[in-house]
Amino acid sequence: MIDAAPLVPVDGDRQNTVLVTIPAEQEFVGVVRLVVGSAAASMGLNEEEIADLKLAVSEACTNAVLHAYASSPVHTERTVEVQLALSERAVEVDVCDKGGGLAPGTPAATVDYEEGGFGLTLIGCLMDSLELLGDCDSGTRLKFVKRHATA
């Protein structure tokens, strides 16, 4: 499911949101990258910023797909929700799942998700801020921001 809507301008900075909900399955992570790439390009981000965003969102979705529902009951709705808030100054990304969740405030460096454990490290390096929160319907919420180089 993909939704898009303009928001009320904040400090004169027009903001648009794009919401994508995917099944928590590996083959759908690429779909989110396509949406993020198109949305970021429409906001005038440069190639490097778009590549950084696509990678960060891909890493966040991959973490959710691989780990969020590993210990959840079979009947749990297994989805990953990605919300982009795009403005002239920055792109804010929220990636939520409804799985078992990680403890809020877990330091990124201690979370070893991947075979190489690079996922959150990459997001932290490529984005301007990164927060791991736990208030997304008991699941995990990863929030990060990429500011425009020209903003």
Partner: peptide, 11 residues
């Protein structure tokens, strides 16, 4: 495009 899944496999 390559992400940490790809890096992990190379490692």
């Amino acid at each position: 495009f390559i992400d940490s899944s790809g890096l992990g496999v190379l490692v």
